[in-house]
Nucleic acid binder design. Sequence first.
DNA 1: TTAAATTACGTAAGACGTAAGGATG
DNA 2: CATCCTTACGTCTTACGTAATTTAA
Lengths: 303, 303
Amino acid sequence: MDPHLLRTFVAVLDHRSFSGAAAALGYTQSAVSQHIAALEADLGSRLVERRPVAPTPAGARLLEHAPALLLRLDAARADIARLHQTRPTRLTVACSPAALGATVAGALAELRAVTHSLDVEVRVTGRDAVLADVVAGRADLGFVDGAAAPSDPLPMPDLGPMTTLAAAEETLAVLFPRDHPLAERRAVRLSDLTQAQWIDASDTAVPLDRLRAVCRAEGFRPRIRHRGTDLHGLAALTAAGHGLAALPLPVAAALPGIAAVPVSAPRLVHRTELVHPANPTAPARQLVDLLTTRRLAADAGRR
Amino acid sequence: MDPHLLRTFVAVLDHRSFSGAAAALGYTQSAVSQHIAALEADLGSRLVERRPVAPTPAGARLLEHAPALLLRLDAARADIARLHQTRPTRLTVACSPAALGATVAGALAELRAVTHSLDVEVRVTGRDAVLADVVAGRADLGFVDGAAAPSDPLPMPDLGPMTTLAAAEETLAVLFPRDHPLAERRAVRLSDLTQAQWIDASDTAVPLDRLRAVCRAEGFRPRIRHRGTDLHGLAALTAAGHGLAALPLPVAAALPGIAAVPVSAPRLVHRTELVHPANPTAPARQLVDLLTTRRLAADAGRR
DNA sequence: TTAAATTACGTAAGACGTAAGGATG
DNA sequence: CATCCTTACGTCTTACGTAATTTAA
């Protein structure tokens, strides 16, 4: 199970094609064919159904492991690379769309005010890509968002030594089209909406399986899928009646054409967490410190 | 980062010797030396200090990833192997020592009574080895134990698609020597014992870092280390005054020469969880079903 | 018939063992 | 000086590309 073979395996199933994967990876078709054959020989099962290209049951099992494995391999490499990097003058922040709210933007502004000649780059990507970027060292730190019980941490996959820090907690809201019967409500119960039409926008809004988990309920069946990280596009889909979506209230309230209604039950918040490697880069540590002291100040002020 | 190279890397640091690792892995010293050199060239850092053999900082980082990576590689292989296995006539159960209490033993007995010609094997190992055995397919399922708040799950590392099931909850107890001042108490507060002398017996008793985690306190400093899975030996160490240990009360009460005192605060239980792959073998599923119906019966009886 | 995967085969790189060479306690 | 790691080198295996062959929509 050479990582190269796993990488081509994943690419083949992503592209649903041997030749497509070959082009993407810079191999010839033949090499890709040999890779898959080698993996299948090694594991003693057919992994890929050909024409059309699709995973066999064994291939499906392998697909549950291979991406995580490749990610952690990158994480190991990045962890070591961080050791002999010289103190960098650039801070790269990976961020999921709903995490880029006032708290995060404000903290970044404060950081730029405090530091001189610090080049800050913000990459807005899907939730999984944030973690992947941080873990593989393509970003110094990341902000991920999700729904959770108040002061409960978000679940994170185990990809090596990482530290998380609560960055913000906001009211969770549901996006309705303006003419929806519930749009005028002061609040809605999420558990009443399990049978509603939802938009599967796992990169942008709170993923539906997360809603299922925090509500401990089935349902939240998607009607349409939204790819990408475009909040306005998502709002447009909701406004046009394609389905509902869950977002933090401050973000949702600023979106045009929709009604944002706070969630009253179960008691949930929208949570943003900062995640960074256990051995962060210097500017990353600076931002972490800044957010920590901010939180301490806020906590003190609240008393 | 070929898995073979990672494997020798781990072996070298385990054995603190190139030649020792070579013997263990069936290579020549030379091959091991070349493996390490190849890894170091690939990652661009020295990973191993020689004479004496020890990890460099970069090597230490890699050591946080390599074992998990290798384990998951085994997990992937085992997951696929389970697919084309024929319905087996043997059930292999991996079990940590404190998990093998009345509930687990009883369930196994019931299973043997119900099934004909089922060969059951129980492997008692350390906590981590239970997971490794299950994940790598050396056991059909495992029982792990630990301390937790009532009805809270034990934390599990993410090693792929796995299912856990609460198997038993028992009172948590601390082992004292008979002549200890607290030995006659009806109950003790764990939080009062952070400064006591403890035995580091992470394979057998509740690991000290787990106690720190559930108490949210520092302390529980080990005085002596106990390796292996021998409950009676552990009791002997405690009886001789080497230090305290935490175990489930039913197990602890049966040990000779010591006093077992229930823990009253923080509110904690000793928890045993069954862990099995998402695609379990047939007899594993049978045992899971048996335990589930048992729990349902117990829950019904309690009302 | 044609797009697409497999097989055959040649070259070049890599992996491992043997054995000689260094370093270190 | 003895132990243990490294380097040099020879052999065998493996990986990949080119090109011919087979397969399936």
